[in-house]
Amino acid sequence: MSTASMEAALLLAGILFMLGLISVLIRRNIIFMLISVEIMLNAAGLAFIVAGTRWVQPDGQIMFIFILTMAAAEVSVGLALILQIYHQLKTLNSDAANIMKG
């Protein structure tokens, strides 16, 4: 694999990142938002792996593992919170959760 595809891989990470970002922006369902953030984190992990590959170092992959851990922890807390919110508000609409403003 040549360096040209290294850039392509980075670009892929960027595209995935942006897709996740679009999704966060357009989705109202909190679960979808959480999924979209996961996509973004995954994209960031991909970028690390590309970088690690470029420099032939394990550090990129290690960062990926850390990201993985963090994503797991975050999703677990997030889902617990979503359950809580569903119980409180009876909806998953993030727009509805706007008691606080101004």
Binding site: L21, V24, L25, I26, R27, R28, M33, S94, D95, A97, N98, I99, M100, K101, G102
Partner: peptide
């Protein structure tokens, strides 16, 4: 701008 809507806050960051 502080309308309490999460998506618009995300928009702020973007």
């Amino acid at each position: 701008s502080q309308n309490g809507v999460l998506r618009s806050y995300v928009m702020g960051i973007v």
